Simulated scan of single mutants.
Amino acid sequence: MTQIQIDKSLYYYRVGGFTSKYMPHLFNDMVNGYRIQKEVIDEYYLDTQQKEYDGISIMLLNTFKTCLYNLFNSKFDKSEIENLIERYTSNEELIECLYNEGSIKYFLVEYLNAIRNKDIDYLYELGKAMYKKRGLKWLL
């Protein structure tokens, strides 16, 4: 069997610039991307499996931060945003990433614990702070 390795990212969600807007499918797309990458790792990268898992877990948790920011580009009110954060933090792939060696080393324990404990207030404020920070940069 011939192995094919793709060394380039084929698609990025871009946050910032003049085209930033709420992307309703961002969370589901990132989780599906994680699942696909995990399947490829399990089939073709057994010799570097942990390293590869580290990479996709960090990517998913970083992209989750983008999802939090993304919610503030929507027309949702606070209650709707909190409900989505609650749903997101119940996702089994996101939870799985919390226990990854690379993720534990890479992220602040407060961030990982907020997801683990479904600390909606912490995650809401994190998304809001990123939104405000990017808004100030855009104005400048």
Score class of each variant (00 low, 15 high):
N73M: 07
E86V: 01
S103C: 09
L112S: 06
I58K: 14
E86M: 06
L71A: 02
I81E: 07
E82I: 04
E96Q: 14
N62T: 14
L94M: 14
S74G: 04
N117T: 04
I56W: 06
N32V: 03
N83W: 07
Y106F: 15
V109R: 11
S57L: 03
L94T: 10
N117A: 04
S90V: 00
N83I: 02
F64S: 04
D42W: 07
C67R: 04
K75W: 01
I36T: 10
Q50V: 12
I104P: 00
D54Q: 01
E80R: 10
R116F: 11
T66V: 10
G102V: 09
E80V: 10
Q37C: 05
N117R: 08
Y99R: 04
I120F: 02
K38Q: 10
N73C: 02
K38P: 00
E39P: 00
Y122Q: 01
I56Q: 02
D121H: 04
Y34P: 02
K38C: 01
M59A: 15
Y45K: 04
N70K: 02
N91G: 06
L112T: 13
E110Y: 15
R35D: 10
T89V: 14
I81V: 12
N70V: 04
I56D: 05
K75L: 07
Y111I: 03
V31G: 06
K105L: 12
N70A: 03
G55W: 14
T63A: 14
R35N: 09
I56N: 04
N83V: 01
E92C: 04
V109P: 03
E93D: 13
Y122R: 00
D77H: 12
N83G: 07
D29P: 00
Y34H: 08
E43M: 10
L60F: 13
I56F: 06
L94G: 09
R87C: 01
T89R: 05
I95P: 01
E96G: 03
N113T: 07
Y106L: 00
S57N: 15
Y44K: 09
K38L: 09
E82W: 06
Q49I: 07
R116A: 08
N28M: 04
G102A: 07
E39W: 03
S103N: 06
N117L: 11
E101A: 12
R35P: 00
L71K: 01
I81P: 02
F27K: 05
K78A: 15
T48C: 09
L71C: 09
Y124K: 00
D121N: 06
L68Q: 06
M59T: 12
Y44N: 10
E86Q: 13
L61F: 15
L123R: 02
I85N: 05
N113Q: 13
Y122S: 01
Y44A: 08
A114W: 07
E43D: 12
N32Q: 08
I58S: 08
D119N: 15
Y124R: 00
E93K: 14
D54T: 02
L71T: 01
E86F: 13
K118S: 08
N28Y: 08
T63I: 05
N100L: 04
T66G: 06
G102L: 06
D42S: 07
K51F: 11
D119Q: 03
K65P: 02
N113F: 09
E92Q: 14
L98W: 14
F107V: 05
E96R: 11
L108Y: 13
Q50R: 07
M59H: 09
L112Q: 11
K105M: 09
T63S: 15
E101W: 04
D77P: 00
N83K: 15
Q37M: 06
